[in-house]
């Protein structure tokens, strides 16, 4: 769990570093970033309602603020926003948002607004990387920081899978099927990327995904 949270945090740091140091967001999908902001905002609605630990609250806060920051850079920063590949980043996000919402309205643990939005965020997160993966495939010579970002972001849910197996074995009554199945799907979506990422890493080459 800790390793998963840390790779998630590092993925965001890597992305912010890339944008800030190179003053460029080329190869980064604004659509994926906006989906992630939607995921964080709908999942962490309970930030001021239920307190679990200082760690949890801080991480929630960091995730919301940092994804807002990245979007701000890509949309408003006068240098960075010029480098956004808008004409390549054309994934129709409505095809991810609406099905996730409808599924959350039907398959959830409790019929309440908070619960449906939380479930929606779980479903949406599992597919939120798709615009980014499509953009990567269209970009020739993906830069290292961008590919590292996607690798770290993909590893995070993979590490959570291990955490869930461990908790399932050690905690009585620990079951969360919605989160598990979504997490499995989320990690499976990265499989192809992981394969090419590790291949290019072994050969010491820049990543380029076959189209």
């Amino acid at each position: 769990r800790e390793a998963g949270d840390m790779t998630h945090l590092f993925s965001i740091i890597v992305l912010l570093l890339k944008i800030n140091a190179t003053k460029s967001c080329s190869g980064v999908s604004l659509k994926t970033q906006e989906l992630y902001l939607l995921v964080f905002v709908t999942r962490y609605l309970d930030l001021f309602q239920s307190y679990i630990s200082l760690y949890n609250s801080c991480m929630k806060f960091i995730f919301i603020v940092s994804s807002g920051c990245i979007i701000g850079y890509m949309r408003k920063h006068k240098v960075v926003s010029q480098t956004y590949d808008a004409e390549q980043d054309t994934f129709r996000v409505a095809f991810l948002v609406w099905p996730s919402f409808l599924l959350a309205a039907v398959i959830n643990q409790k019929l309440s607004v908070m619960e449906i939005l939380w479930t929606f965020s779980i479903y949406l997160e599992s597919v939120a990387i798709l615009p980014q993966l499509v953009l990567l495939q269209r970009t020739k010579n993906v830069d290292n920081l961008t590919s590292n970002y996607v690798f770290l972001l993909g590893s995070y849910r993979g590490l959570y899978l291990l955490n869930w197996i461990y908790r399932c074995l050690t905690e009585e009554g620990y079951r969360q099927w919605i989160v598990w199945i979504s997490g499995l799907l989320q990690t499976a979506i990265y499989c192809d990327f992981f394969y090419y990422y590790l291949k290019s890493w072994r050969k010491n080459e820049r990543l380029s995904l076959p189209s």
């Binding site: 679990i52 991480m59 929630k60 643990q109 009554g173 079951r175």
Partner: peptide, 10 residues
Amino acid sequence: TAPATPKDEL
């Protein structure tokens, strides 16, 4: 139905 697992993960 089983009680909901507390949302203690991120």
